[in-house]
Every structure is written in C-alpha cells, then in structure tokens.
Write a protein that binds this DNA or RNA. Structure first.
Length: 742
DNA sequence: GAACCCATCATTTTT
DNA sequence: TGATGGGTTC
C-alpha cells in the first residue's frame, strides 16, 4: 500500500487537459487526488496558488486539506480546497456588488427560507394548502439548480394560472432575500454564475488563478455546479473530475448523473482513467456488490476487483418482525464486543432515519454505546437559532427574519401586533423592519409600544458597537447577559433549561475556537462559518461506539463489520422507487445498496423483517430484490428466508417473484499489480535518495523536527511515519515529503 | 401567551 | 406510530 498502483499513477501524472477518473468504491480516490496535487507542486513546479480542489462536504474538504498538507512541503495553504458553496461565498464576498448585491450578505438556512416563504405567501394572499411552503421552496430550489430565474421560470413552464403564481412567489421570495441582504444556499452558486456571465473580466481573474481544477464526487454535481466548473475551466482546460457513477445517490437533491456519464462528450479530448482495484473489502463482499450493481443499465463499464481473500460469506437473516431483527443484531454485536472487537469498527446502516429508534432501544438495553448520525442538527435547536439570530441582527440589521425571531425573545412586551404594524409600515415605505423600529414614535398606532421598542433598539445598537471591536466571545457573553436570555433560562431551573444552557455553552465554545483559529476574526465570517460548516456535532474522539446511520450518510466511510437492516421491498428499495415510472429511481436505490455493501471490509450482515410496523400499520413485505441479486454462492440465508426457499406453501405470498438465476461470472480475481511499465514510472516521484532510517531525527520543511518511527517499503517509495515535535505523528511518502536527516 | 386539540402526513441530506 | 403545525380556548 505504500505506493500508487499503475492506474492511480496514471491519474496522478496526467495533468494537462480534461481528465475523468472513474474511481470505484475503496479504490484509493482521495490518495490519488492528494498525490496529484503533490505531483503538480513538487514535480511540475505548479504554484499552489493556481490549484483548486472542490469537494462536497466540509468534512471531505478538511480531510483533503490535511492530507495535502502532509504531502506537500510548502505553500499548501494557498491551494483552494473548498466546497462549492464556500468557494462561491469567497468569490461573492469580493464581487457581489458588481451585479448589484452587497458584499456583506448573510446566508439563510432552510428554516429561515421557510419563514421567508410563509411571509411571501401571506403577502400574495395565497392559500397555504394550494401552495405549500415546502413545495414552493422545492420548486424554486430546483429552478435555481437549473439556473432558471423567475422570468425564465414563467417562460419555460406551461402558461397556466398556477405557474404564474409560482413565478410570482419566486420573484417575491427573491425580492425579500435581497431586501434582507441575504442569499440562500442555491443562490450562492446561482449568483456566482450570474456574476461570471455579467462580468467576463472577473471570470477571467478566476480562470487565470485556477489553472488546475479538481472536482471530487463529480457524480453528485448538479447543473449549476457543472456550469460553474465549466466556466472556470474554460480557459486552461486542466480539469480533473473524480467520481463513480455507481455511487450517485443524490438525485433527489439535484445531482445529475449525466454530468459524469457525459463528461467525454462535453470534453471529447478527455482522458479517462479507471480505478478498479479495491483495497477495502474481501472478495466475497466485493463480488456481492458487483453482482448487485450489474443489474443497472447505462453505467460506465467497470468492474472492481481485489487481491484480498474471499473472506466470510455474507449473512442474510429474515426475522419475524423488526424487534427480533434489532434484538438479534444487537446481541450479535454484544458477542463481537465480548471477543474484543472494537465497537467503532461496527456500523448499522438503514434506509430511513426512523429505523434507528428500535435499534437504539435495544442498544441501550444491552448497554452498548452508540453514535447516531443524522437527526436534529445542533444548529436547528431553538436556543442556538435564537442566539445566532442576535448575532445576525447585530451583523446585518436588514435581516428581518432574524430580527422578528428575537425581538420578543426573551419577552419584552413587543407582541405580534406591534411587530406587524411596524412591518407594514416598513414595507409600504420600502425600508427594512429595523429602520422602521428606529422611528417607532412616528408610526401610527405604535406610540404606546415605542418606549419598549426603543429599549430594544438601544440594546441592539449597543451590542453592535461592541461587535465593531471584534471581540466575539465578549460580544457573545454580552448578548446572553444584556438580553436576559441566560438569566431567564437559569430561572427556569428545569432539566430542559439546563440542557439549553449547555447547548449555548457549546455554541460559545465554537465561537472561542473560531476566534483562536481565524486569521482575522470578525462577525460576518463567524456567521458564514456557522451557516456553511453546520456539520452535525464534531466527532468527539470517544471512539468505542457503534455507528448508526442511513445508507446515504455512510457514503465515503468504511467499517470492518457492517449490518444492513430492513432489506425489504417497499423499504429498501423504497416504495417511492418501486412505484415510480422512472426506472432510474429504482437504479438509484440499487446504487445505494451498492454503496452500503461496499462500506464493509470484513463482514457483512444483512437482515429483513417479515412484518414491520410502518406508519401505524403492520406491513408484510417481501425480501428486498437486492438480496436476490447477490450471487447465491456468496451469501448464507437464515431464518424465515430459508423456510421460504424450501417450502413453496409459505404463509405469506411468495416473496421471490424474481427467482431466475442471473448469469454470473463467478468469483473474480486479478493478480496484484506489479510495477513494470517504464512508461508510467517515467518522471514519477520516487527517485529520491533516502539517507535516514527508523530512529533518525529528520526535518520537514513545514512540520519541523521529528523522529522517524516507521518506514514501510512499497514499490519504489517508502511510506514514512514521523513523530514530529510540534504536530505529532504524520504519515508521508519519502519521495514527496523531502525529509532531511539531521 | 400558554395550553390543548385536531388534522395531517410522512425517503434519502448537504450546503 | 408519532412529530408537527394551525387554530382555538382560557
């Protein structure tokens, strides 16, 4: 594992012109990207400043940044490693004014979008039953993903009353955002494209800057992201996209699988490299995954292989009901624990979040610690939103939504009637709510509340003054004190109030750590980080826990032991997909199954329940078709599943409607790659004289002094583990790290 | 402004 | 089944 294999190297060294890396699950994709960046810098002397690496999640960005840091000697800080959204924010902060915006905009999250939409519907006097907020926001989001503004929306859709109304809603919604000096998530990308279209000079700046562009998880990009990348790469065309069409599972959120499938049509001179060697799973697991995904049509032709051993067969058990299933999974985990398996090596994966409940119950009962991913976000809690709203109003008084949220929180006698009057006045005078409050005395009908309003605006003005000094932790504490928010909670003296105080404390910690880390801490950037980096609670190092998560959130992760529960028709694949007339919906479920299977390294246990309580009613389901798509020689069936296979007169209707045996090539193995191709090794990193060994003190250009702990030879490179005085242990490649013996 | 009742409606999620 | 939201009542 020390070096790159042939294809990985090929992908690493092909740097001029468009490149598509089809990276199968577990094929060492991140390694390739990071090594590619290192190669660009160290071997081709590309200025790190000219490199852009785009990821989808902050987590991925962070991981990539760390790995690049470890590989690249110097200058890695000037590489842009960022998500689409934070990249766009960074660009818009400098140029939004060129298309009539303000560069100090704030970002609205989903709940704020919803509030805006409610107001829009009220203003337009539309029935929320006919025009539900959620659906409206969805339609707008889909439009924005297609780079369709309100006017185009009206033009492109059938000219009926409803569509006209929706276009009006869209227009009004945008107007509100603009008045509040805010953008929603989709706008970040939309407006950046708009900026580039409107101002070719600005686009040119970024084209010149980003001479080398890499996009990870390319199968997850939506249309606007595709457009954005295309614009940026248009000049130098050094565009490298990495992805796996078989792992495209985010269609529902706008991902367009054709971005990756048609990459070669978009870029006819594109080079394609396939990474097909899997380093993660046993052969049995891998071939099970291959067997399942082979049922999809219109995929890129590729087949994962491994030189690992067959390993244990997959297990499938059908239980009577979901309680039995959960209990059995948990007792299995308990026995693993007893023989010394680390709980952090175990994951339970399911299709829908609500399946976690029973599992949690049984885990708690069995006294097995677990970590649940998903669920309510920390930032969605009321108290957190409240405090953030204070920060938002201080930062951007035009933010009506945040203002309304806190104007009477805690109670200060400014009720809905008062606020509504002020809001009406604001709208008819084309000003924002805060400005209206400042002149409350002159607003008819507000004289009585004016005194209270003044106390509030004075408080906010005072806090805003404090924000100017940029001592954010102090500002945070002042908000809690001066608004009485903290006092109120303390006075409540309930468990709930104490939990809220704890959450606020946690938010405070985030502010503190932001201030410590930021180069130039300021409120705008803090809020941006909160909006953009709202990942579910940081991993607290406490490792020995079972992981519970949806199949979706498991993408990109791996676990030695995996349980996939709820393998039932109607649940997985979901009934939405089985009933859909778009066959791709079913294929997407299958890809999700493929993702799930390929998370497992050593052992994969699948299970189903014959009867399951679903939405208050008992559901009798057939076993998931995906179980039958796993080649029979790779899987052992237990429980009801066996009864069904053996006796035709089952109590429930024959679960296996699709029983025909699919032709299968059998267990597929390739010998491990041996490096011999002179063509590939030419100019590769690796011809560095190594004059140090384990125990020596060495110096790294960035990390400083350290001691060599371990050197693993692989091919012509060494993977060196060094314990640095300042930053602790790091793994790096001898050829790239350029360590000097002291 | 809080407490309560009824109706409704349910995938997947990041930014 | 159970969470959520709107509307009503005290």
């Amino acid at each position: 594992m020390g070096t790159l294999n042939k294809e990985q190297m090929e992908a690493c060294c092909y740097t001029d012109g468009p490149l598509l890396i089809l990276a199968g699950a577990g094929s060492g994709k991140t390694r390739v990207i990071t090594h590619r960046i290192a190669y660009l810098i160290d071997e081709l002397s590309v200025n790190p400043f000219n490199i852009l690496a785009i990821t989808f999640t902050n987590k991925a960005a962070k991981e990539m940044r760390e790995r690049v840091d470890a590989l690249v000697g110097f200058g890695s800080e000037s590489i842009w490693v960022s998500t689409f959204h934070s990249m766009c924010v960074r660009i818009l902060r400098r140029h939004f004014d060129e298309i009539g915006g303000k560069n100090n905009f704030t970002i609205y999250d989903t709940s704020e979008q919803k509030t805006v939409m409610k107001e829009v519907l009220k203003l337009l006097n539309l029935d929320a039953k006919m025009y539900p907020e959620r659906e409206m926001l969805n339609i707008i989001s889909k439009a924005k993903e297609q780079y369709i503004g309100p006017d185009e929306f009206e033009k492109q859709n059938p000219a009926n009353y409803r569509n006209q109304q929706i276009a009006n809603i869209y227009r009004e919604y945008q107007k509100r955002l603009k008045n509040n000096n805010t953008l929603d998530f989709d706008d970040l990308i939309f407006k950046t494209i708009e900026l580039f279209e409107h101002s070719p000079e600005t686009l040119r700046i970024y084209q010149e800057r980003f001479k080398y562009i890499m996009v990870d998880e390319y199968q997850d990009t939506n249309h606007t992201q595709f457009l954005l990348v295309k614009m940026l790469a248009a000049r130098y065309r050094n565009l490298c996209v990495v992805g796996d069409d078989d792992q495209s599972i985010y269609k529902f959120r706008g991902a367009n699988i054709y971005n990756i499938l048609n990459f070669e049509e978009e870029y006819p001179d594109a080079k394609v490299v396939k990474l097909e060697q899997n380093y993660r799973s046993t052969a049995n697991i891998l071939n099970a995954a291959n067997g399942v995904i082979a049922n999809n049509e219109g995929r890129k032709d590729k087949r994962l292989w491994t030189d690992k051993e067959d390993g244990a067969k997959l297990q499938f058990t059908e239980y009577d009901n979901e309680y039995q299933e959960a209990e059995s999974v948990v007792s299995d985990i308990a026995s693993k624990k007893r023989i010394g398996v680390s709980l952090s090596d175990i994951a339970i994966l399911y299709r829908t979040n609500n399946q976690s409940r029973i599992l949690e119950e049984k885990l708690i009962y069995a006294n097995i610690p677990y970590r649940l991913y998903g669920g309510t976000n920390f930032y969605q809690r009321k108290e957190i939103q409240d405090i953030i709203s204070y920060l938002k109003v201080i930062n951007n008084p035009a933010d009506d939504i945040a203002l309304r949220r806190i104007i009477n929180e805690p109670r200060r006698g400014i009720g809905d009637t008062t606020v509504n009057k002020a809001q009406e006045f604001a709208i008819s005078n084309d000003m924002n709510l805060y400005d209206a409050l400042l002149m409350a005395e002159e607003i008819p009908g507000l004289q009585r509340a004016a005194a209270k309003i003044k106390v509030f605006t004075d408080l906010m003005d005072e806090l805003r003054l404090m924000a100017g000094s940029n001592d954010l932790t102090e500002l945070f504490d002042m908000i809690l004190e001066k608004t009485g928010y903290k006092m109120n909670l303390e006075a409540e003296n309930t468990d709930e109030a104490r939990a809220r105080l704890d959450n606020i404390e946690e938010l405070r910690n985030k502010v503190v750590s932001y201030e410590e880390e930021a180069e130039n801490p300021n409120l705008t950037e803090l809020l941006e980080e909160i909006a953009l980096v709202a990942d579910a609670a940081d991993d607290d190092g406490d490792g020995n826990q079972v992981t519970l998560m949806t199949l979706h959130s498991a993408k990109g992760l791996e676990f030695p032991y995996v349980y996939m529960v709820g393998m039932e028709e109607g649940l997985f694949p979901s009934s939405m997909a089985t009933c859909s007339d778009d066959p791709d919906d079913l294929e997407e479920e299958r890809r999700l199954c493929y993702v799930g299977i390929t998370r497992a390294m050593k052992e994969l246990n699948l299970s189903a329940a014959t009867v399951r309580m679903l939405r208050g009613t008992k559901m009798y389901s057939k076993v998931s078709r995906f179980i039958d798509e796993i080649p029979a020689n790779l899987i052992e069936r237990k429980g009801n599943a066996i009864l069904r296979q053996e006796s035709t007169g089952s109590k429930y209707d024959a679960p296996f409607s699709i029983k025909k045996e699919k032709p299968y090539a059998g267990v597929y193995k390739k010998p491990a790659y041996t490096m011999s191709s002179p063509e590939i090794s030419k100019g590769m990193p690796g011809d560095v004289a190594i004059n140090y060994q384990v125990g020596d003190t060495v110096k790294h250009i960035k990390f400083g002094k350290g001691t060599v702990k371990e050197m693993v030879k692989g091919g012509k490179d060494y993977e060196v583990t060094v314990d640095f005085e300042r930053v602790g242990e790091k793994k790096m490649f001898a050829s790239l790290a350029k360590l000097k013996k002291l």
